[in-house]
Design a protein around this nucleic acid. Sequence first.
DNA 1: GGAATAGTGTCTCTAAGACAATATGTA
DNA 2: TACATATTGTCTTAGAGACACTATTCC
Lengths: 253, 253
Amino acid sequence: MEEQSTASNGLQESGRDEPQGREVVATSEAEAHKYDASKYERPSVTVDVVMMSLRQKDLQVLLVKRRSWPYEGMWAIPGGFVNIDESLEDAAKRELQEETQVENVYLEQLYTFGEPGRDPRTRVITVVYFALLDSERLQVKAASDAVDVDWFPVYDLPPLAFDHQQILEYTLNRLRGKLEYTTIAFNLLSEQFTLRELQRVYEIILHKKLDKRNFRKKILSTGILEDTGAKKMEGTHRPARLYRFNPAAEHEL
Amino acid sequence: MEEQSTASNGLQESGRDEPQGREVVATSEAEAHKYDASKYERPSVTVDVVMMSLRQKDLQVLLVKRRSWPYEGMWAIPGGFVNIDESLEDAAKRELQEETQVENVYLEQLYTFGEPGRDPRTRVITVVYFALLDSERLQVKAASDAVDVDWFPVYDLPPLAFDHQQILEYTLNRLRGKLEYTTIAFNLLSEQFTLRELQRVYEIILHKKLDKRNFRKKILSTGILEDTGAKKMEGTHRPARLYRFNPAAEHEL
DNA sequence: GGAATAGTGTCTCTAAGACAATATGTA
DNA sequence: TACATATTGTCTTAGAGACACTATTCC
């Protein structure tokens, strides 16, 4: 809460305390000279992308193994620099592409972490995005991956680099919260799915059992599902109806 | 979505695509030398703070008038650079202090805006915070303010600089959303308040009338209010009970 | 007693949750 | 027919919303 000079970094975005003036009104020519000489460092900005998917009846997250200091050998959330002419979301999409080759996935900005000490190398502010991938499309790529990229169950994580554990906890909470009042969960399933599969998604993320009858009643009453007419048989028992998400319906639960 | 070298920016936060190994071991000294040659520009990072308060039965936002290009003379959300050794939240608190002299207010990180073209001067990524101030404490300061800082009703805003209109719309939506399931609204009132005053806060923010009986029933049933025993008389009619927020109660509605 | 706002109770309807029996496919 | 999962309905309870009259203070 102490007073510090915002001006000192040489450029001021908003209205007041205009820092320096290489912009007309002179409020601060002096300052400009004084500060633009990169005497005052700028933080680095990265985008990290938490990619989650349902694999082997587990909610899993994609991590990459660090190859150098700091946290060498530890696992981390994939991320990278924001290019100077690239939007934050584009940077996140690029990161997603690099790791998964999958396009058109659910992507949401989560939170920005910027504690001064979070990266021992330098000041790094990271804008964290959150992506949900359906396992169907993902399977293909999975095998071809390098050894230093892998999926981990979110409830059984290795030690993580930086503040990445905290970031994953944050992500999981957000996911749980949104599960209740949005259709975010559908992004984890392929185009057609059974109600049982959908229920499993909820159970895995909320980490508790749900009543089958109540769950079906609730989902079906919203009208967000469309019966495809097809059925899915697996094992030696009655086949289940296949549904598809009806995007015409409002995206709320 | 195209592949671009994240490495090219000289420092990679997360696990993979390690931008080449100058990291080895050496602390960041080497890095600093090699990459800070600003061959690759870094975006600037600012923190903007949307400060809202209830004034004259209106939800108002604090804006500052720009004194120079770009958007000279237009109003903007107050903000400033993040100092290199300062957390994002500290930067927001500092900004808040500079504008209002008020401490201990509700402060929340909202969203990070970073479209490449949003500031014509250079690439600026801004982390937006959101503060709610109670008008009581604010009154004092109000008068002593400079002319280039002022409060505006959120439903009747002047033209705004940068993408600040979009930011305010985003803020208002978030506020409305949180109103329903959190006690965020209490931050706009002083320590003691009547139920009618609380209802007005909801009505102003949601922009619709609420039923008095249902509102009172709902609020009182949660147990988040404590009767102070005191009453508030104004005008020539029955005085109203004064309540206080009970922080012991869970912060949910 | 008039003016003005504070304070209060009932009914209906919807949604959530607890709970168990029948239906349909395969081998 | 045995097995395994899919599918379905009822009851209770809690909360939301519609709705109108009485209470208290000042003058």
